[in-house]
Design a binder for these strands. Structure first.
Length: 282
DNA sequence: AAGACGGTCAACCGCTTGTCG
DNA sequence: ACGACAAGCGGTTGACCGTCT
């Protein structure tokens, strides 16, 4: 017998989210926090699948998300992490505060892949693509790398909890070290980028330079969510007991997306609700 | 002007993993 | 140990938009 569907597909709405739905979802989560996605749509008055709500929130509505294209720094980080972790987008995203796995995955497939190919680097193996037949050593290295990626990508039945722990430990140890083949990318990018030089630090500590978002492509949705946040702001101020400084760099980039500079300066030292502070602490 | 085409990205689908009784 | 359920994850799809012809 197959798995039960997560929701009745005849009764749920699919496709792009309307600003009204965004508003309902944002409002509900800000007031009640994130709990039980399956029952959330009903409670929030949404005709959506819980899964869909979770995705919309984590990929789009979450207020700590950065918007706009990935910076050069972030791109290099993605390349470096991909060399170590393979297509484990959520792991990669966890090292890039304010970025989602979906966003990184899309950016990889649409921008970085091409860039690397253009530079003569195989986006899968992260080794240089040569026009000649690969040498014996290169072939072996590539095979090893593919095998490595394969193992990383398929943590299935053969992996016991103990070996999984070991794998995770190994993984954690590897993060922060320069992989053997990353030199090839460094050479091409003419930049000694390497994670042992770029500390992988918590979202709270990372300050990623962001670009102006005037060129943001997701015109409808991003705009609608920004409007929603603006609409909801008074509620947060009412609910919040905790005082934070909006001058904190952590928040400034997010705020840049939400408000113009004047708005941000007006909001310095305003108060916010606990739910919101939890969201920001992600 | 309009149709074809390609690029981008939000959203979906289905599988895997984690948790709890 | 097992099954059921919720959440997470990565691959894929399809709508939208800009550019080209």
């Amino acid at each position: 017998m197959g798995r039960q569907p997560c929701c009745d597909k005849n009764e749920v709405k699919k496709g792009p989210w309307s600003s009204e739905e965004d508003k309902k979802l944002t409002n509900f989560i800000l007031n009640n926090g994130q709990c039980c996605w399956r029952s959330l749509p009903k409670l929030a008055g949404l005709l959506r699948c819980g899964k869909s709500c979770r995705l919309r929130w984590t990929n789009y509505l979450r207020p700590d998300l950065k918007r706009g294209l990935l910076s050069e720094y972030e791109e290099k980080m993605v390349i470096d992490l991909h060399a170590q972790l393979g297509n484990r987008w959520s792991k990669i995203a966890s090292h890039l505060p304010g970025r989602t796995d979906n966003e990184i995955k899309n950016h990889w497939n649409t921008h970085i892949k091409k860039k690397l190919k253009k530079m003569g680097i195989d986006p899968i193996t992260h080794n240089p693509i040569t026009s000649d037949q690969p040498t014996k050593n290169q072939t072996i290295i590539q095979q090893e790398k593919q095998e490595e990626n394969k193992n990383i990508g398929t943590t299935t039945t053969l992996i016991t909890p103990q070996s999984q722990t070991n794998l995770n430990q190994q993984e954690n140890e590897n993060i922060g070290t320069c992989p053997k083949n990353i030199n090839s990318i460094d050479e091409v990018m003419n930049n000694n980028f390497c994670t042992n030089e770029v500390p992988l630090i918590s979202p709270k500590e990372v300050l990623v330079p962001h670009e102006s978002t005037t060129s943001s492509t997701s015109s409808f949705s991003s705009q609608s969510s920004i409007n929603i946040l603006e609409d909801l702001l008074p509620n947060w101020q009412c609910d919040f007991n905790m005082e934070i400084s909006w001058a904190d760099d952590d928040f400034s980039s997010t705020l840049d997306y939400l408000f113009n500079d004047d708005d941000v300066s007006d909001m310095n030292n305003t108060t916010i609700s606990q739910d919101w502070s939890q969201v920001l602490e992600v």
